[in-house]
């Protein structure tokens, strides 16, 4: 038997052969293992995302009569500060006058408050740069100033100067009455 060669290449593992059944089993088993690890990895990654109770966030209602003209009240909404500012006529005029000025994220003042409610500026109070809370009435434009990295916002909450890329975001809100607002 030792001298007998049957067929051209009796060794099923010889190099250069087409994939045989054993190669198929190797690849299939490897793919199944990789797939299984991938499937099991997802729960361990996704567990870090917001949980159901965090997602089930209630909206907040706020009594606007607490805010005097020219003042701002900060409340917490979704873990972040929410600015509710009652702007003076002068502050509104300054914001409207700047509508045509050049700014990184151009937006008209009118688009940032509810129609006919120009005095109420309701914004998420987290700097769009790295999330610090801008200080009231600070900076070169009289709106807000972020102490962390020097972003200047105007009285409409629009970014005018500094590293922040976008304007302070306006959350979804509605007026339930003249003195009551519901955010979220």
């Amino acid at each position: 038997m030792a001298d007998t060669v049957v067929g051209e290449n009796p060794d099923p593992h010889a190099a250069g052969e087409d994939p045989n059944r054993r190669d198929f089993i190797h690849i299939a088993a490897g793919a199944a293992a990789v797939g299984a690890v991938g499937v099991m990895a997802w729960p361990f990654i996704d567990q870090m995302n917001p949980s159901a109770d965090t997602l089930a966030l209630a909206s907040v209602e706020f009594d606007l009569s607490k805010v005097a003209l020219g003042q701002q009240v900060t409340i917490k909404w979704r873990g972040k500060p929410l600015f509710i500012r009652k702007r003076t006529d002068k502050e509104i005029a300054a914001a409207v006058a700047d509508d045509t000025a050049s700014m990184p994220d151009p937006q008209a003042d009118e688009a940032r408050h509810k129609p006919g409610k120009a005095e109420w500026m309701i914004l998420i109070g987290a700097c769009t740069h790295l999330g610090c809370v801008p200080t009231f009435a600070g900076g070169d434009y009289g709106g807000w100033f972020c102490p962390c990295h020097g972003s200047h916002y105007d009285t409409s909450g629009r970014i005018r100067r500094g590293p922040a890329p976008t304007n302070l975001p306006v959350p979804d809100y509605e007026f339930l009455s003249d003195t009551k607002v519901k955010v979220g």
């Binding site: 990654i45 870090m48 995302n49 917001p50 949980s51 965090t54 966030l57 979704r78 873990g79 972040k80 987290a126 740069h129 790295l130 999330g131 610090c132 962390c148």
Partner: peptide, 30 residues
């Protein structure tokens, strides 16, 4: 807040990554 927001600078996936790091919509108990 500042350091986790650094990841928010990444285009497209930035916000999803920060939310994932926080486990919420802000730095909180999670």
């Amino acid at each position: 807040v500042v350091i986790t927001n650094l990841f928010g600078a990444l285009p497209l996936v930035g916000e999803a990554i920060t939310t994932w790091l926080w486990g919420g919509f802000a730095v909180d108990n999670a």
